[in-house]
């Protein structure tokens, strides 16, 4: 992993920058005359910044908007408002035609290795498809060799080009997906739960592959996951999302070592640690109830309905990420660092 200072001077401009990104999905009723009865506020004002060679982990539970964020960042969905810049170029409001060249720089790695590869295409066709879409990247005659090189790069035998996806295991399929994403030599990979469908013994292989590729190619990653242990392992910086908003953001060590937002604390304390000796010696914060509906989120701080620190102020004002001025950003009026992952007694 790269040292923070070295990178800051090498890449002054972020490769990926999101400012005030909002995505609302209208909820419609009626068959013939559709009327909008509300909005699902999937992503509601998110700021992110990612530099070359770095990894930003985005964590949160289902429904927090992290998958929608992934689609926004790669330009698959237009944001309702806000700006997304790739290498300084805005992709937010671009038409399908104008966005195509920019797409090369940001690619997506999917969660499910079974649905992300066309079962009727050979591995060679799958990994070579990017070259057929962007015909100017590699001349036709060299494409076969380029595909084999990509397969080799992700640790698959180049002889496998004529095979079909079903002949591979989940981990191998994920490698094929990564090879396809790398074909256009992107600067940023957005990985949406890339290892959560894999077995533990295979997860490590894929994570190590991603780290090696980052070192070799200087890639920047947005690593979206619900598994906080995996994110701790791979991310330099971490953003914690709750109901469409980033509630805490900072360097990985700071977030994991001393989370300041009550939600982050609850989330981290809930992750089981594979060490029976710690049983009963760790702080357990068990949250009550369920995540509220993103159609009608609570006023003020969105976490207040489940928060043990909630006060009157939380219902009236929306806390900003700069609240309290601690070591790192946390959107809570009563933010306070607290180590919840290690044994307390």
């Amino acid at each position: 992993m790269n040292a923070e200072t070295g990178q800051a001077s090498a890449a002054p401009e972020p490769v990926l920058q999101a400012t005030g990104v909002v995505k609302h999905f209208p909820v419609q009723r009626g068959v013939v005359f559709k009327r909008t009865v509300g909005n699902v506020r999937a992503v509601d004002g998110v700021d992110l910044e990612l530099h070359a060679g770095r990894t930003l982990g985005v964590v949160g539970e289902s429904g927090c908007g992290k998958s929608t964020l992934a689609k926004l960042l790669v330009g698959l969905e237009p944001p309702t408002s806000g700006s997304i810049k790739v290498l300084g170029q805005e992709i937010g409001g671009l038409s399908a035609r104008r966005i195509r060249p920019v797409r090369r720089d940001v690619q997506l790695v999917f969660q499910d290795p079974y649905t992300s590869l066309n079962p009727r295409m050979t591995v060679g066709d799958i990994v070579g498809e990017p070259f057929e879409i962007h015909t100017d990247v590699v001349p036709r005659r060299e494409r076969g060799a380029a595909v084999k090189e990509l397969l080799d790069m992700v640790g698959l035998s180049p002889d496998h080009v004529n095979r079909y996806p079903h002949q591979f295991s989940g981990g191998q399929r994920q490698r094929i997906g990564i090879a396809r994403a790398l074909a256009l030599r992107p600067r940023v990979l957005v990985c949406d739960e890339p290892v959560s469908a894999l077995d533990v013994s295979i997860q490590g292989q894929v994570i190590n592959l991603l780290e090696r590729l980052q070192d070799e190619l200087g890639l920047a990653y947005v690593f979206i996951a619900h598994d906080l242990s995996v994110v701790r392992h791979i991310a330099d910086e971490v953003a914690v999302m709750y109901l469409g908003k980033v509630v805490e953001r900072g360097a990985g060590a700071e977030i994991y070592g001393g989370p300041r937002h009550p939600y982050t604390q609850a989330l981290l304390s809930a992750v089981p640690v594979p060490d029976p000796a710690l049983r009963g010696h760790r702080e357990e914060i068990v949250l009550q109830g369920d995540v509220p509906s993103p159609i009608d989120p609570p006023s003020g701080c969105r976490f207040r309905t489940r928060c043990w620190k909630a006060a009157e102020r939380c219902a009236e004002e929306v806390p900003g990420l700069d609240e309290g001025g601690g070591a790192h950003e946390a959107a809570c009026f009563y933010a306070e660092g607290r180590d919840v992952t290690r044994a307390v007694k």
Partner: peptide, 12 residues
């Protein structure tokens, strides 16, 4: 399906 999304993501 994801593989269609992947193709769109590649600019198809």
């Amino acid at each position: 399906l994801d593989y269609v999304t992947a193709a769109r993501c590649l600019g198809a």
